[in-house]
Design a protein around this nucleic acid. Structure first.
Lengths: 111, 111
DNA sequence: TTCATATTTCCACAATAGCAGAAATACAAA
DNA sequence: TTTGTATTTCTGCTATTGTGGAAATATGAA
């Protein structure tokens, strides 16, 4: 495996470094692969539209979410490919490059 | 699995949301489980001592690293247990609670 | 002691992030 | 058209973060 783009992963982590944005991602993952419209996200999260919009922009900048328009609605979806890269990076660092964590210990926690 | 403490994971992500700190963690994981002394980290990373110290403090606050003193040296180590929780959280969100990512797709990237 | 090394803390500053009300824009329906 | 709904952008404010020089602290060696 080649040297990872550390700066990019750091930016992705930073984009996930706020409770609001983690909640957004969780909702979008629950609704995957359809995603959700902004209004439903707002109703679920209870945060002002402008604030929500900023959070979505930040996630979009790191490609953690994608948007598509359907009529007057914007549908946001979690970007599985990017999340896979992030998970792959963490996995590689902790379980492959280093042996700090045993792979079976990860899945175990998810039960 | 019970509801995760989203705020805590967000803080952990935030702590990893800087290139310098990801580099620190990578070094510490490479040197796991012995860890490294601050001076060696500094030599490797080429950043001023005070700046490095701040980054280490941030990682320590989220329990991503631990410290022990040996004589005049402080040995920092990556905290495998915390990283395991973080990896477990991401895995659970993406692969268990949602099926956005297939587990075998993660490991594949690490090759 | 005295001196050297390791590391943190103090201090200050610039840059970025988070927040949210209000206005603007995009689209659809009547 | 006009009106309504969805969402972003504008604006401004406050809080947090990143940075690093200089001083302080901790420890060990001579």
């Amino acid at each position: 495996m080649k040297t990872p783009d550390v700066a990019r992963y750091a930016d992705m982590f930073a984009a996930m470094g706020s409770e609001a944005r983690v909640r957004i991602l969780r909702l979008l993952l629950s609704a995957h692969p359809n995603g959700m419209v902004v209004g439903d996200l707002q109703a679920e999260l209870g945060i002002p539209n402008s604030t929500l919009s900023h959070h979505l922009e930040k996630l979009k900048n790191e490609d953690l979410v994608s948007v598509r328009r359907d009529r007057q609605f914007l549908w946001y979806t979690a970007n599985a490919e990017t999340l896979r890269e992030l998970l792959g990076f963490l996995y590689a660092e902790c379980c492959s490059r280093s042996k700090a964590i045993r792979p079976d210990q990860i899945i175990q926690l998810a039960k």
